[in-house]
Amino acid sequence: MTVHYRRAARQTVPTRQPRTTICRAIVSEAGRLRGSALIPIHAVCGLAAGIACGVYFAAAPYDPGFGTDAFFQILGAFMPLMVAIIVALNIETEREAGDMANLLGIPSRRLGLTAKIMVLWILGLPALVLAALAFRLPMALADRAGTPVSALALAILGIAGGSLCLYLLAIALAMRFGRNLTIAVGVVGTGTAIGSLGGLLNGLYSHTLAGAGPTGVSRWIPFTWPARFGSLGIEQALALTMPGGDGLRVSIGVTALDNLVPCLDFTLALAVALMLWIGWFEDLHKSSD
């Protein structure tokens, strides 16, 4: 009796490499922030700004509505500096950890860069919310929290939306020129934002809607948008308490639109330019230098 043995064919099953997606890139980027100093920096800055301004305006003899408007103008005006510091520190850490290998040494630099921008930008949103809550608490305890919560939310979204282009700009500056120049530009940006509103606390002292005032050439300057949009979020509610409120709200809408169009155009153009630029970027500020 003849027994035939059939040798089992060995089939090699190709292993599928996990596809890199924007969600995976964002999760990976967020994971690298675990234990980073950036998270406590956001929390401390948000709490400090909110509590300090809240305690001051709760006790100061100013109209609480204009005090709230002034607070969000301050938050927005200092966004260029804060964004510059946060982004510069993050890029410096990436450079020291391995010459930005997590950004430049991955299969898709564009996905890595997009993830980094989104994570840093989203990280700023809880800090703004924390600042607003810390501000509102002492105002509420002093029975001076008359501004609707919806107006606070609109102001927060306005500051966050208006600052996205600042993250894009700061990323480009930090990668190309390094930390010091990036922070210096942030300082200039904050000064520009304050000047665009007629000076710090101008509306509070003059009892006017500084955010809704004429913007002129400032509507084309990215540094001014967080302060402008944050202020307009409060002033659209504040206008209802003033004579000629309907006319003031129309003026606020016109100002918002005048700033929104260049903000969207510039942010989109800068995002496209960054995606094209990152493909051939070579780091000239390596940590080993």
Rank of each mutant, 00 (worst) to 15 (best):
L181T: 14
L248I: 07
A25F: 08
G195H: 06
L81H: 02
I85C: 10
L130N: 03
R19G: 05
L257Q: 04
C45Q: 13
R136L: 11
A212E: 09
L104W: 10
F71L: 15
G50R: 07
W220I: 13
Y62C: 05
L201P: 03
L260E: 05
G191R: 06
F57E: 09
V83L: 07
I252S: 08
I252D: 11
L111K: 11
L81E: 07
G65C: 03
M82G: 07
P80V: 03
M118L: 14
T68H: 00
I122M: 14
L268E: 09
L111P: 00
G178V: 01
V83D: 13
D143Q: 07
I252P: 00
L130H: 08
S196L: 01
S288T: 14
L173A: 12
L113V: 14
L120G: 05
R24I: 01
F66S: 04
F71P: 10
P148F: 02
G245L: 02
E96G: 00
W225V: 14
L274T: 10
V27A: 12
L264K: 01
T15L: 11
T255E: 08
V44F: 14
G244A: 07
Y56K: 08
C53R: 05
P138C: 09
M139E: 10
Y56E: 07
Y62S: 11
A101F: 05
S108Q: 09
A174Q: 08
L268K: 00
L284P: 00
H42C: 11
L164I: 03
G247S: 07
A145G: 10
Q236T: 13
L154K: 12
P61A: 12
G161S: 09
G199F: 04
Y167S: 06
R179V: 00
T2N: 11
R34A: 11
T93D: 15
L154I: 04
T12N: 06
I22T: 11
T147N: 06
S288G: 06
A271R: 06
G191C: 13
L257E: 08
F177W: 15
A48E: 06
S28Y: 02
T215M: 15
D69N: 11
E235R: 09
T192R: 01
L137E: 12
A48Q: 04
C23D: 08
I86A: 03
V27I: 10
G54C: 08
F281T: 06
L104R: 03
R7W: 12
L103H: 09
R6P: 00
M82T: 15
G76S: 05
E29H: 12
F72E: 01
L130S: 03
N259F: 06
Q73T: 07
T182N: 05
G279M: 02
R136Q: 13
Y5I: 15
H4Q: 12
G213T: 01
T114K: 14
A184K: 00
F223P: 11
R136W: 14
S287Q: 00
A210N: 07
N90P: 00
Y5N: 02
T192Q: 05
R228I: 00
R10L: 15
Y167K: 10
S231K: 06
